[in-house]
C-alpha cells in the first residue's frame, strides 16, 4: 500500500515538475520545476526497492535472522543522484545568472537567438 502511494506521489511530482519546466516563462521557476522532477524520480526509485514491512538495511546484530530488510541498492543510487542533482542545479543557476547579465531579463521569450 505504501509503495503504491509513493509511486503515485512520485509520478504526480514528475508531472508537476515537467509541467513547470515546460510552461513557465521564468528561468528560475523552470529550474525549480527541475528540482521537483528530481524529487519525484527519487521517490519512484525508492518505492521500487521498498518491501512492505521491511526495516532499514542497517544490521545491528549479526545473529538477527528473520528480519526483512528493504533493498539497499536503489537507496545507494538515490544517495548519489541527490548529490549530482545539487551539482546540476548549481550549474543551471550559473547559466541563468550569466544569461541575466547578458540580457537583463530572465524571461525565456526574450532570448531570441535560438528561435526558429
Amino acid at each position: 500500500m505504501i509503495g503504491t502511494i509513493a509511486v503515485s506521489t512520485g509520478s504526480l511530482l514528475v508531472l508537476v515538475g515537467l509541467w513547470s519546466a515546460l510552461t513557465n516563462r521564468d528561468i528560475i521557476r523552470m529550474i525549480v520545476g527541475f528540482t521537483i522532477f528530481d524529487v519525484g524520480i527519487h521517490l519512484i526509485m525508492i518505492s521500487v526497492g521498498y518491501i512492505s514491512g521491511g526495516t532499514a538495511p542497517i544490521i545491528s546484530n549479526l545473529s538477527d535472522i528473520g528480519v526483512s530488510y528493504v533493498d539497499p541498492v536503489p537507496q545507494a543510487l538515490v544517495l548519489t543522484a541527490i548529490v549530482i542533482g545539487l551539482g546540476i542545479t548549481a550549474f543551471m543557476l550559473t547559466y541563468a545568472v550569466n544569461m541575466y547579465e547578458k540580457k537583463g531579463t530572465l524571461e525565456i521569450d526574450k532570448f531570441e537567438e535560438l528561435k526558429w
Partner: peptide
Amino acid sequence: LFIIMAAPDVAMTEAAIG
C-alpha cells in the same frame, strides 16, 4: 516519506542537500 519507507540515509541526504 523516505524515512517511512525505511531509507534513513536517503532522508538525511534529501533534507540536507535537496
